[in-house]
Design a protein around this nucleic acid. Structure first.
Length: 442
RNA sequence: CGGGGCGUGGCGCAGCCUGGUAGCGCAUUAGACUGGGGGUCUAAGGGUCGCAGGUUCGAAUCCUGUCGCCCCGACCA
């Protein structure tokens, strides 16, 4: 993409409304614009990041054996009356009437929809277990939206729902998601710590919140220093019940708890290794037994002919919130530092002198070759001074910058800069191309 | 939902107390110079001061209402 033809409104100053760093940077870097309280338009650059994150979530859900579908944003009140939640949910649910005066709502979650859909088609134990998920916009009419996309009213959520014949099966489904979540966040460069959590209005007795450490987080959290080691992907067979259980057991062995769930004995045990921080909740998983399946009359026939009420769990990831959480965890004074896995473009190509014939030709050539090699490149071909271009690239946080200028070209070199480390090396344009092409396919 | 604050060119703000020609910085446009970390000079464009009503000869300014947004607290993927 040529910057001269793109829509990327960046600015030096951020609106006074923005309080926390991720919100300020998302506005300054031209990622989002607010449309109403807690409701945002995703500008081109921000939307690319959102889709990258969404795709990682999707791939890890698929790997864990979950199946994607798409449920509507609008739901009928009737469905929520079946579960008894229509009255229980309260003013956070946005209620709407259609032209026939029928009561509708903008879905804050989808237990009712999925249970109804699956209930009407699943007849036998052969149809189970299944975990179904979708990535869809949700609306929760928060009393006080704030912190940009970290706490919006409209937000993109991945929500998964598992159906099993019994609690043992349900716990395995739960463990699948537990490990899938660790892998999902690790791929985004985040260390997300699973913590024992309250189940809240969703109900049930087994629940973990996945929390990313950040000083601006909304929850106080306590954890063992073992959690400070960098996040690593776990290569697992998701069908291996015992193997998965022991992996989850291993992860939960190290103490980690939110403020409400602190355990004095375990904190004493951790001793000097106990750490305190603030955190952002990026995922939450629940096992809640037959709460919805029984309320909504879901039954399937077991192999012995008896009727069984399936056990369920639900599993959420705040996809749009993750954009903010990643920035909270990865930025510096100059701007955002995107992990390569979610960066909107891999590399920013800076033409130091748009008016310089040789320089422009070299840049155009390198740009074409990068695109042909499948490297996502944002080419700053504007007639601006170098300083302005550096500042733009730094604030939008692309992982790599290739700087092409007349001085370097005299010696047949370009400069490759790593945004995260600030390290700069000189190399030939073809070497820079090769290096970027290699990273694009890695 | 309780408490507090703010709405003035795209963004950040001043002006309001004490009513009288709407201003500054950044950004934008044009030209010139300049060219490796947000350049300089010159010129220019852009605002019915959130909206509605009231007071007044006259309202950004005073009064009433209303809408929107933000902050603290309680609640949340």
């Amino acid at each position: 993409m040529r910057l001269s033809r793109y829509f990327l409104p960046v600015s030096k100053e951020s609106p006074a409304d923005a309080q926390i760093i991720s919100h300020k940077l998302m506005l300054r870097a031209g990622l989002i614009r607010q449309t109403a309280a807690g409701i945002y338009t995703w500008l081109p650059l921000g939307y690319r990041v959102l889709r990258k994150i969404e795709q990682i979530v999707r791939e890890e859900q698929d790997r864990a054996g979950a199946i994607e579908l798409l449920m509507p944003t609008m739901q009928s009140a009737e469905l929520w009356r079946q579960s008894g939640r229509y009255d229980a949910y309260g003013p956070e649910m946005l209620r709407i009437k259609d032209r026939h005066d029928r009561e509708m709502l903008f879905g804050p979650t989808a237990e009712e929809v999925i249970t109804s859909v699956f209930r009407d088609s699943a007849r036998s134990y052969r149809d189970l277990p299944r975990t179904l998920y979708n990535i869809q916009w949700k609306f929760r009419d928060e009393v006080r939206p704030r912190f940009g996309v970290m706490r919006g009213r409209e937000f993109l959520m991945k929500d998964a729902y598992s159906f099993d014949m019994d609690e043992t099966g349900a716990r395995h489904s739960y463990n699948r998601m537990f490990v899938a979540y660790l892998n999902t966040f690790a791929r985004m460069g985040l260390r997300a710590i699973p913590m024992q959590a309250d189940t809240g209005p969703i109900g049930g007795d087994l629940s973990h919140e996945f929390i990313v450490l950040a000083p601006t987080g909304e929850s106080d959290v306590f954890y063992h220093s073992n959690w400070e080691k960098p996040a690593a992907l776990t290569d697992v067979d998701f069908d291996d019940v015992d193997g998965l259980r022991s992996i989850v057991g291993g992860y939960t062995a190290d103490y980690a708890a939110t403020d409400e769930k602190r355990d004095e004995a375990r904190e004493a045990e951790a001793g000097d290794a106990l750490r305190q921080s603030r955190g952002v909740e990026v995922g939450h998983i629940f096992y809640f037994g037959t709460k919805y399946s029984s309320a909504m009359g879901m039954k399937v026939q077991a192999s012995d002919g008896s009727e069984v009420i399936p056990h369920m769990g639900s599993y959420g990831i705040g996809v749009s919130r993750l954009v903010g959480a990643i920035i909270e965890a990865s930025h510096d004074d100059a701007g955002i530092i995107w992990p390569e896995s979610v960066a909107p473009y891999k590399v920013g190509l800076i033409n130091m002198r748009a008016d310089h014939e040789g320089c422009a030709a070299a840049c155009d050539d390198l740009y074409r070759k990068l695109e042909a090699a499948g490297v996502e490149v944002l080419y700053d071909d504007r007639d601006e001074r170098g300083g302005a271009k550096f500042a733009t690239m730094d604030v939008i946080g692309l992982p790599w910058q290739i700087v092409v200028g007349p001085k370097g070209l005299e010696r047949d070199v370009v400069e490759l800069k790593n945004r995260a480390t600030g390290e700069k090396i000189e190399l030939s344009a073809s070497d820079a191309l090769a290096k970027m092409a290699q990273r694009a396919t890695a």
